[in-house]
Design a binder for these strands. Structure first.
Length: 536
RNA sequence: GGGCACGUAGCUCAACUGGCAGAGCAGGGGACUCUUAAUCCUCAGGUUGCAGGUUCGACUCCUGCCGUGCUCACCA
């Protein structure tokens, strides 16, 4: 038999040589043509099966050879061909459905000449269906003795090699379907992610939360400090923004009497990409009326061990070379944390230093002296009234991140944040410069952010005005004035606490993934330039 | 955006100090009716990411570009 290429030269040759990949494609086209000429449809519409592969394995794995021979039960099963081993007028092949594998045994005298010709035209990756009886081979492997073989769909391109899998990171992300086929661990990561989200939903539903969906396209991007993506609606001729957070809409729903609401959905932020940041990411936000941030601290400490146990079967997870106990939480105020995690004994700031804006400057300068190259924190302006300058509070928040964040491996709640970096949070009654807000850190990453929601419309307006002043000074991330939100608050919002949990990062923790791209099926990459497009 | 690395056959990887681009798997042809990373014989498969430069000679050295990874900055 001459090779397919010689027999069927590529039509679009134009003098240039046909690439090897095209050659493989041509070979498979030819095989498919020959399968059709045997009378098999190339793309049949369905296959009625009696069992999934997992069902066959569950029922028969424990059955001995004699038992199977006695029953000689006929099954119809299907799947993707994962391995083919020929033996002249017979052959073995492995069918795969997800992680389930079942061997089939194809003999010429059992499937007939036509069936065996079909078998010889199969490639790795093809979908097939078989009918036959179950038996055990000499080596004891459960197999289907095939009497009828059907092609269900042909793989026109070769799948990645079975033994080494698919290693090329770029191909793994761009063609995730190949990654999922070639690397079982990848498949398991995404199944775990799915279980995590299901467990979160169950835990919230159980506590009386209602799931809602709020706009992803918003005329005003609000609820977070971040740069948005902009888009345009043609019919209305208006600019819209992909949401950076659902927060302001969810709180409108609390105004509307939905006392416990949550949403699990995508946020979009037009910012850098890193191992911890994807431009679109999944966030859980939930709001609970008649509660404050203390209640949410308690809830968080209940919820996380619960869902992690539901997802992983245990509350201890391995992350990098760290073992993290998701069932034990430490709590520090932001100011305590700076003092506690300060790297040098002699210059360690006391709590009183952190309360005094006048001393913040000296403290940051000390830090910057200790870390001349990186981890530098900008020094705030000396005025005590923040009016657009880089503020004392913002500086403290940055100092906290520089000093503490990557050291917070075990679950740690950091609470009480500067008002300047928290435009939507309620102030502490005794310290107006500080708000009732906490963040949860695990594995050196910020996992959750929560606060007692500011529900005083007058105060909220002043906060927005502070943000407007920042915007005036060129801060691209400052929060927008949102009159409609102020109107909603003016109708009255009960005391409410709200929290956002980064689902991707939580998924990283429970799947031991170092990069956020490993828990997002299709992370954002630059588009591929096709060789054809380049010629244009 | 900055820094550091990487890019060789469909896949996984070699190629010494600059000296003829190679192997395994996958693929084509052949043998084989209990194999399971099947085996045996055989054949084909490459603009070494792209574009320049240095050189008698470049996968190798230099410059630029493209893509990806890590990292820093920004952020969650």
């Amino acid at each position: 038999m001459p090779s397919g290429v010689e027999q069927y030269p590529h039509e679009q040759g134009e003098g240039t040589s046909v690439s090897f990949e095209q050659e493989l494609l041509e070979q498979r086209r030819e095989k498919l043509r020959r399968i059709e000429s045997l009378g098999y449809p190339a793309y049949p519409h369905r296959f009625s099966y009696t069992h999934t592969l997992a069902q066959v394995l569950a029922v028969c794995s424990s059955k001995a050879a004699e038992e199977l021979t006695q029953e000689k039960s006929i099954v119809r099963v299907c799947g993707r061909l994962q391995a083919i081993r020929g033996h002249g007028k017979a052959g073995f092949a492995d069918l795969a459905q997800g992680e389930a594998r079942l061997q089939v045994y194809v003999r010429k005298d059992a499937v007939g000449d036509r069936g065996f010709e079909l078998y010889q035209l199969l490639d790795l990756g093809d979908f097939v269906g078989v009918e036959g009886y179950l038996f055990r081979t000499k080596t004891g492997e459960l197999s289907v003795h095939v009497s009828e073989l059907t092609l269900l769909a042909k793989a026109m391109l070769p799948l990645p090699e079975k033994w080494h899998g698919l290693q090329d990171v770029e191909v793994r992300y761009r063609q995730r379907y190949l990654d999922l086929l070639a690397n079982v661990e990848v498949r398991r990561v995404f199944l775990t992610r799915s279980r995590l989200i299901r467990a979160l939903r169950a835990a919230l539903e159980q506590r009386g939360y209602v799931e809602v969906e709020t706009p992803m396209m918003q005329p005003l991007p609000g609820g977070a400090v971040a740069r948005p993506f902009r888009t345009h609606h043609n019919a209305l001729d208006i600019d819209l923004y992909l949401r950076i957070a659902p927060e302001l809409y969810l709180k409108r729903l609390v105004v509307g009497g939905l006392d416990r609401v949550y949403e699990i959905n995508r946020n979009f932020r037009n910012e850098g990409v890193s191992t911890q940041h994807n431009p679109e990411f999944t966030m859980l936000e939930f709001y609970q009326a008649y509660s404050d941030y203390h209640d949410l601290m308690d809830l968080t400490e209940q919820l996380l061990p619960e869902v992690v146990r539901e997802t992983c079967g245990t509350t201890t997870v391995l992350f990098g070379d760290q073992t993290i106990d998701m069932g034990r939480f430490a709590r520090f105020t932001l100011r305590e944390a700076i003092s506690k995690f300060w790297p040098e004994e002699s210059s360690r700031p006391q709590f009183s230093d952190l309360a005094d804006p006048g001393r913040t400057v000296a403290m940051i300068e000390t830090w910057n002296c200790l870390h001349p190259e990186e981890d530098r924190v900008p020094v705030p302006a000396n005025s005590e009234a923040p009016s657009g300058e880089f503020s004392h509070g913002a500086a403290l928040a940055q100092l906290f991140e520089a000093v503490c964040e990557r050291k917070l491996i075990q679950p740690t709640i950091i609470y009480d944040f500067p008002v300047e970096v928290s435009p939507l949070a309620k102030s502490k009654p005794d310290e107006p410069g500080w708000v009732e807000r906490f963040e949860l850190f695990i594995g050196g990453m910020e996992i959750a952010n929560a606060y007692s929601e500011l529900n005083d419309p007058e105060e909220q307006r002043r906060r927005f005005e502070m943000q407007a002043a920042l915007k005036e000074k060129g801060d691209l991330e400052a929060h927008e004035m949102d009159e409609d939100y102020l109107r909603a608050l003016s109708y009255g919002m009960p005391p409410t606490a709200g929290e956002g949990i980064g689902i991707d990062r939580l998924a990283m923790l429970v799947t031991s993934s170092r990069s956020i791209r490993d828990v997002i099926l299709f992370p954002l990459l630059r588009p591929e330039i096709s060789p054809d497009a380049e010629k244009e």
